[in-house]
């Protein structure tokens, strides 16, 4: 019987932690202005997050609230509520997924053509 921790065990753990650190370091950080709501893998709606008023839509038993620079899943009919626990999203690449209801919300990057500010 081998020791509890061998050098190969330490190598495996170090490698996994290193990969996770690399993935974490290169994650996208920009804030997004648009979010895509997907149902069954197909795009259902693209919403603009920049308006100050919040709006709510319900698809497949998942209620999504967006506006004021963020988007979040308020409630879902699924059992484990992983999507609700994902919290409020505002950065590019952030997402919330409800696998049982097959609904996904993902923040997209800024639209380069859209005006950021309008000056008089």
């Amino acid at each position: 019987m081998k020791k509890l921790v061998t050098k190969w065990d330490i190598a495996v753990i170090t490698a996994v932690l290193l990969i996770s650190l690399l993935l974490f370091a290169f994650r996208p950080k920009e804030t997004g202005e648009k979010a895509v709501i997907r149902v069954d893998g197909k795009e259902y709606k693209t919403v603009d997050l920049r308006s100050d008023e919040t709006e709510e839509i319900t698809v497949n038993g998942v209620s999504v609230v967006y506006g004021g620079g963020e988007i979040y899943i308020k409630d879902s009919s699924c059992r484990d509520k992983i999507c609700v626990n994902a919290g409020h999203l505002s950065k590019k690449g952030q997402f919330a997924v409800c696998a049982p209801n097959r609904v996904a919300v993902e923040i997209k990057g800024n639209d380069k053509n859209a005006p950021r500010a309008v000056t008089g």
Binding site: V16, L17, I19, S20, L21, L23, F24, R27, V36, R38, D40, G41, K42, G93, Q94, F95, V97, A99, R102, A104, E106
Partner: peptide, 17 residues
Amino acid sequence: ITVGSSAVFGYAPVLLV
């Protein structure tokens, strides 16, 4: 595959730890 968004891989670093 089921969600159809590569965004799920953003969860990968957390899952690895």
